[in-house]
Design a protein around this nucleic acid. Structure first.
Lengths: 192, 192
DNA sequence: CCTTCTATCTATAATAT
DNA sequence: TATATTATAGATAGAAG
């Protein structure tokens, strides 16, 4: 998108590399912002220049929050794939055993295999359920904490509002010269 | 860059929002890759679709490494701001000492005190607000993840139920007695 | 949901200031 | 080094399959 096509490899000339970095960096961040707005998605973008300077963009107020979410996501994924892999492994092992030992599987052997598979399945499901339950418990706990915190804050705010009048009276009473400053003090006490 | 200019706001039509997300997402990742190659810089890009699906790009082999670097960077920054805060604190202490030694505070001293109180109050409130916001965001986050996980589970279960019949036929062919167990067996083999 | 096709819009390389 | 200009490469919206 310039006067000529550009090869996709490191720009050797330091100066023009710097210029390109500056231009394309802002372009990239702009694009990221557009995507997050247009499609209502969360985006985190981190860029380290070769000089070690940090440039960042995040769709929400906190990049760290998105990165946390990323970590959580990865953990869940690896957890899930671990379960699947285990189930697959035992299934495969069982099949090998059965196939190597049998010309024709007997009813009993099939039955054993079924039981084992059944167990594996139940375990997998239990693990998933557990993960979900843990999430839910955490969620509920946080909700409680949040409510408590809210109440506390409201109480505090109410208390602050009540105390405004006293301060105004006390200072204004002793020295009328302070009136000019009182407005600041009052404003202060009004800041929620 | 299309048939017409697009307003920079959330695309309301779900279908076209999805299409745009798909197109622009790949465009953004492509741009990120180009920037990292052309200018030899480290880039980490994380995108969460509204459905909770993760898309990512990183210039180096490990996104986690870049994020670690990011965290280190932030820690250094917060270290610096900590120093500033400490300086502020000692300044405040000094003021307290001075004020406690004076019989009658001067207008100027009161004024300074007011400002400091103001700052302290604002900081405290901002901190509380921040804490609340963080809690809320986390809560919402978990809700999203939970929903996504639920959907996944439901999909899996639905798929499991669907596929039962096939296996029943195969195994049931040899021994009809096993029908009762087959449903579980098949469910297992469906585990990804 | 993916591709392909283009008309159009956007980003930017080269250049100048 | 930053900003502005301009020609061109590149991205993509909309439509169709």
């Amino acid at each position: 998108m310039g006067r000529r096509k550009v090869e996709m490899k490191r720009i050797e000339d330091k100066s023009s590399r710097q210029v390109t970095f500056s231009k394309r960096r802002s372009g990239l961040i702009k694009k990221a912002r557009q995507l997050s707005v247009l499609c209502d998605v969360e985006i985190a973008l981190v860029i380290f220049s070769s000089g070690g300077k940090l440039y960042e963009f995040s769709s929400s107020e906190s990049l760290a929050r998105i990165l946390e979410r990323y970590h959580r996501h990865c953990e869940l994924e690896s957890e899930a794939s671990k379960n699947v892999n285990e189930a697959l492994r035992s299934y495969t092992e069982l099949l090998h055993i059965v196939q190597s030992q049998l010309e024709e599987p007997t009813v009993e052997q099939l039955s054993v295999m079924e039981k084992q598979l059944d167990t594996a399945l139940l375990e997998t499901r239990a693990r998933k359920t557990q993960l979900m339950m843990e999430s839910i418990m955490t969620l509920q706990e946080k909700e409680k904490l949040l409510k408590a915190e809210n109440e506390l804050l409201e109480t505090e705010i109410a208390a602050m509002d009540k105390n405004e009048d006293k301060n105004e009276v006390v200072i204004g009473f002793n020295d009328p010269k302070h009136l000019g400053h009182l407005s600041q003090l009052q404003t202060l006490s009004l800041l929620r």
